[in-house]
Nucleic acid binder design. Structure first.
Lengths: 133, 133
DNA sequence: CCCATTGATTTACATTTGTCAATGCGTGGT
DNA sequence: ACCACGCATTGACAAATGTAAATCAATGGG
């Protein structure tokens, strides 16, 4: 599982392939940054709310205009938050006619969940963490 | 689950009982704030790294002095990050003699993972892997 | 073709965040 | 009692973040 060749790409490349489990060995810096980037996207109540709203919307999709009122924020602000979520690969944006429909990237959420939950592999204990950047 | 009476407490009250799944209905504001609070704690590469370092440390515990060098930050800064993680209930602090040992609150991570993963309504519990309480 | 509608960008600004140096506070060894 | 050690707190400061007003770009209906 070579992950050291991971760049600062917009991430959304493959949202389902995130990183190694957080608790199954010391994450290298790149993975830690990648994970933190996604967690940070969920680190705001409004954005958590937005994801939840989209997931619960009819058809599991919603446009900006559907979201501004429930969260009580201006359209530019909601658009800004959605961009952050999209850049993190947590939602997908699909332009359809005049509207931009957003859907939840469930695979990305699952991948994130996997990095938090019990490590899939029995984590071979590594002694001495000589980490030298 | 009445959660509207939830204040800005240090959260760590019961880290395993977090919130309803993000994608199984619209989260109320309180739950969204609670979730965001925890995600935000993981929204920094250093803190992700710290959790990973603790989990991988011998005995799955570590003191600040074990952590400063791997992350390459000053002791006050690491202490600051650990406070944020502890306030979010993601790690537990245990003063033992002169040292403060930190351990990962795996239940909190699992609870967080559960709010991300498939909503409890559909998929039954994972049958293969030893289910833990 | 004109114009209303949807959403993204830009600009601006107050607040929060990450970091370190300096300092304070317990604990334990001598 | 004293002092070294481990860690938390305070103060300070640059950088990032959340938000809104104003503006821009594109689409679709008359």
């Amino acid at each position: 599982m070579p992950s050291s060749t991971r760049a600062r790409l917009p991430v959304a490349d493959d949202p389902a392939t995130c990183c190694a489990p957080m608790t199954a060995g010391v994450l290298d810096v790149a993975d830690a940054e990648e994970l933190a980037h996604r967690f940070k996207a969920l680190g705001d109540p409004t954005r958590v709310r937005l994801v939840s709203l989209i997931a619960a919307a009819p058809g599991a999709e919603a446009c900006i205009c559907d979201l501004t009122e429930p969260v009580g924020l201006s359209q530019p602000t909601v658009s800004h938050h959605m961009k952050i979520l999209a850049d993190a690969g947590l939602v997908r944006r699909e332009q359809r006619g005049r509207w931009a429909y957003f859907t939840v990237q469930r695979e990305a959420l699952d991948a994130l969940a996997r990095t938090l939950g019990e490590p899939a592999t029995a984590a071979p204990r590594r002694s001495g963490g000589g980490l030298t950047t």
